[in-house]
Design a binder for these strands. Structure first.
Lengths: 215, 215
DNA sequence: ATTTCAATACGCTTTTTACGGTATTTTTTA
DNA sequence: TAAAAAATACCGTAAAAAGCGTATTGAAAT
């Protein structure tokens, strides 16, 4: 009996998943959660074998939740259920300790296979993501999964204000800083993320919210 | 018997929805589609009463599909199943002719209710969106649903290049234009969308891809 | 046939961003 | 406790974007 926890803020998806998983008599959905905090709460009492984890959730998102799970409950296998097949996102989650990554084109058969695989200690990702998994397994990140945060909290604060359309002067006002300071932060953010203008920063940030720890 | 078509590129969600809807014996899912083009194809042969439509789909997205449905098959009721509770998005879809808008926090009960409502000619939106529906019903858009495109195709082309991180000079190179022309387009885009800098444009564009006709 | 709109392009000014630094203080971590 | 990282701030210059315009051409709509 494989004990499963589903974490997603989309209730229709949760209910659907429960019905799909019910087909397999050796699967048992022992709980559902609408955000990461509920996941962490639940596993204090009872341990699932596999967690199906959405990335974009309120309160505590999938990336943050995965971080906690990996440090406190390293034996629980996590499969990411994501809307994004963005390469960077897949790598981020694998590096953070996910054992599976399913894209939205997954059908029931592959979902079952993914759960079976990760339960047996193997990795499993959607077919369209196989090359990314291989790249990950060959990389050094596979060995030393040092999930240090790329951006500092101050930098994240500034990124979110940039996203909201604020100029450096406005950000400086809001945070009681000099515009030079905000400028320096912006430079450092670009350097760390290997970007070179505001447009690409906003796009990157919106597509990697969970990973960056935004919102 | 209410005939239902489900259009979503997320197979897990589709399969889940089918199982959920199977509870109601007066519902019949007569088809599923992974994109808008499949929807249009299917209804040439057979007419559903209600379509559950996702916004972000490849090939032909929900907004585009809704446009075609409204002009060619105005009697088919469309319920948007969306991940976004962004106010602007909800209004856009209502203005485009959607009769329902369900956010991801919807449970089975509300899904059933939505289908019953729109089948009987009423509007139905998730509870958290009630005020937006009211605003829509009071607005003039409710009367004259003139869905003229906000941005021209040239402007859309430029928006997508801006999103990709290109400067005006780079865009000018790519499109064989003067930077002055690109600059003018940029200004007109800002004017039309009521925005004032690149960061807010990128955010707006990424959050309104379907509506703008991007990607 | 005339008005409207889209696409093109230019002029000028100001603001903002980008990129190259340096440097001090505080906090964190090894 | 020493070293590293984060947060702060400044200096200067160049590039880019933003905010005012105007104007021509061609296509589309009325």
């Amino acid at each position: 009996m494989i004990k499963i926890l589903i974490a997603d803020d989309h209730n229709v998806l949760i209910n659907g998943l429960k019905l799909i998983l019910a087909v397999r008599s050796d699967f048992k959905v022992i709980a559902v959660a609408n955000n990461g905090a509920e996941v962490i709460d639940f596993i204090k009492n009872e341990r699932p074998d596999v967690i199906l984890l959405d990335i974009n959730m309120p309160v505590l998102n999938g990336y943050q939740t995965l971080g906690i799970l990996k440090s406190d409950y390293p034996d629980i296998k996590v499969i990411i259920l994501s809307m994004l097949n963005d390469k960077r996102n897949v790598l981020n989650m694998l590096e953070a300790g996910a054992k599976g990554y399913l894209f939205k084109d997954t059908d029931d058969k592959h979902l079952f296979k993914a759960i079976d695989c990760v339960y047996n200690g193997e990795y499993y990702v959607s077919e369209s993501l196989q090359n990314i998994l291989e790249e990950f397994l060959l990389s050094n990140k596979y060995q030393d999964k040092k999930n240090k945060h790329l951006l500092s909290s101050r930098e994240l604060e500034i990124v979110s204000l940039i996203i909201e359309g604020n100029t450096n002067a406005e950000i400086a006002d809001l945070l009681f800083l000099s515009t030079r300071t905000v400028d320096t932060h912006r430079k450092n953010i670009f350097y760390k993320l290997n970007l070179n203008n505001t447009a690409s920063l906003v796009k990157y940030a919106l597509e990697n919210k969970a990973f960056l720890g935004l919102q």
